[in-house]
Design a protein around this nucleic acid. Structure first.
Length: 423
RNA sequence: GGAGAAUUCGCCUAGUGGCCUAUGGCGCCAGCUUGGAAAGUUGGUUGGGUGCAAGCCCUCGGGGGUUCGAAUCCCCCAUUCUCCGCCA
């Protein structure tokens, strides 16, 4: 959630941000009004309560007659105090409801507009040229017997698959490569729960507009997470963390579950868009002053991984309207997918500034001893989808796939995955 | 699944209706002491809201209730521990 102090001091800035996102500016006025109402009602209640407290305190030391009188007065006050408290609580609820709807204030410089209004920051690597017709990853997956979609569908339905043989090993190798890199950069590895309570899902903001993307288990009132970000953001909720030694960084590995409810007909072939995949996610808790710098670092680590996988990619600065509600700025790295002759998102990194941490009540202690809301950032370091780019970009005429050098140590030194007779 | 116990300011802990505006210890921070340290000693040490400020309000796991007044009494919930059952 946004900072109510900003709402009081500079509502125009929030309005401008809402406008850039194509979100409601009217919410800001509504929130300001609700805030005003709440503060008045709260002051009224507190004054009455102070009076009540003062009277109650006198009772103990009073003479019998005075005592009767004071108790009578107290009885009279009690109902009024209760009513005032209720009024204040109602206004506060109203304020909260509105404020939670306001999205994070976008960073200055973020492109205005929607999904297609991103700005390409740079392109890296060389797109492969083939003297044969490149196969798509589905075909390669069958040829090499590394992705078994048919049987995945048989077992679990559409958008499910088996990773098999070198495919399974390749994914584990990718995750291990990423985890080693993260560990070197001072990330603590975490294998996170993938079933979480409603309040955690709500607290991380995933129950809002994306709620139909999420699997829910009614018998247990638990949600399956679509990213370990949920658990990683909730990890330090309601805590005062120590940031004196620098950022707290976590590399969370988990299986991710997504209903893909709104994407019927999109990417139906292969494993580009699936209900279940694995992901290694970077997550940083930093001071608000460090957030921009950390964001640049997360992006640099993502690019490092892409380079290790020898993938051509571009980095885009996502437009305001395409940001998640928690993000103030988001960079995506998209890898070249030869069969589609287009770039597809492999990583995404968001700077959530204090927006997410405020809602989850994650604080740190400043040098003056006071507490302040921390900033959070997240970024992908590896996912199952990377296999698509790796298989397609490194394919050879005979259908074999060259394994990127950095991955070989994790695959027993293997250099190539060759076609096999399908079993 | 059943029964019982517990949850207090970083940690431990006192506290069964009103000077609890929460006790004491450990730890931590600052001062004194010291050549320096230890020991000793004095003070500080939960957070939040609101207000220019003084202050006021909230906070004893969470939420309700009883009462003029609740850490304390009642109800619901969460978590932890112990025992029983069940499963491995």
């Amino acid at each position: 959630m946004i900072d109510v102090n900003l709402l009081r001091e500079n509502p125009a800035a929030i309005k401008a941000s809402q406008k850039a996102r194509g979100a409601s500016e009217d919410l800001v006025d509504q929130a300001a009004k609700a805030d005003d109402n709440w503060r008045k009602a709260q002051a009224e209640f507190e004054n009455l309560r102070a009076e009540q407290n003062a009277k109650a305190k006198l009772v103990a030391g009073a003479s019998p007659e005075e005592r009767t009188k004071l108790i009578a007065e107290g009885q009279e006050l009690a109902a009024g105090v209760k009513a005032a408290e209720q009024r204040a609580a109602d206004f506060q609820n109203e304020l909260n409801t509105i404020v939670l709807k306001i999205e994070n204030v976008v960073t200055e410089g973020v492109p205005v507009g929607g999904e297609d209004d991103f700005v390409v920051i740079r392109e890296e690597g060389t797109k492969p040229t083939f003297d044969f017709t490149p196969r798509d990853h589905t075909e390669l997956g069958e040829l090499l017997d590394v992705i078994d979609i048919e049987r995945g569908v048989k077992i679990s339905g559409s958008r499910f698959y088996f990773l098999k043989g070198w495919g399974a090993r390749l994914e584990l190798a990718l995750m291990n490569l990423a985890l080693d890199q993260a560990a070197n950069a001072n990330f603590t590895a975490l294998i996170t729960p993938t079933l979480v309570k409603p309040e955690v899902m709500a607290g991380t903001g995933f129950l809002g507009e994306h709620s139909d993307e999420i699997y829910y288990l009614p018998a247990d009132d638990l949600y399956l997470t679509g990213t370990s970000e949920v658990a990683l953001a909730g990890y330090h909720s309601n805590e005062i963390i120590d940031l004196t030694d620098g950022p707290k960084r976590y590399a969370g590995w988990s299986t991710c579950y997504r209903r893909e409810a709104g994407s019927h007909g999109k990417d139906t072939k292969g494993i580009l868009r699936v209900h279940q995949f694995n992901k290694l996610e970077m997550f940083s808790y930093v001071t608000p002053e460090q957030a921009d710098e950390e964001h640049a670092k997360l992006l640099a680590w993502q690019e490092e991984m892409l380079k290790k996988c020898e993938l051509p990619y571009r980095v885009i600065d996502t437009a305001a309207g395409d940001l998640g509600s928690s993000a103030a700025r988001k960079f995506d790295a998209e890898a070249w997918v030869p069969s589609q002759e287009t770039y597809r998102e492999l990583t995404s990194t968001s700077n959530c500034t204090t927006y997410q941490a405020r809602r989850l009540n994650v604080r740190y202690r400043k040098e003056d001893g006071k507490t302040a809301i921390a900033a959070t950032l997240n970024g992908t370091l590896a996912t199952t989808r990377w296999l698509v780019a790796i298989l397609e970009n490194h394919q050879q005429a005979d259908g074999s796939v060259r394994i990127p050098v950095a991955l070989r140590p994790y695959l027993g030194g293997a250099e190539v995955i060759s076609p096999v007779k399908k079993s």
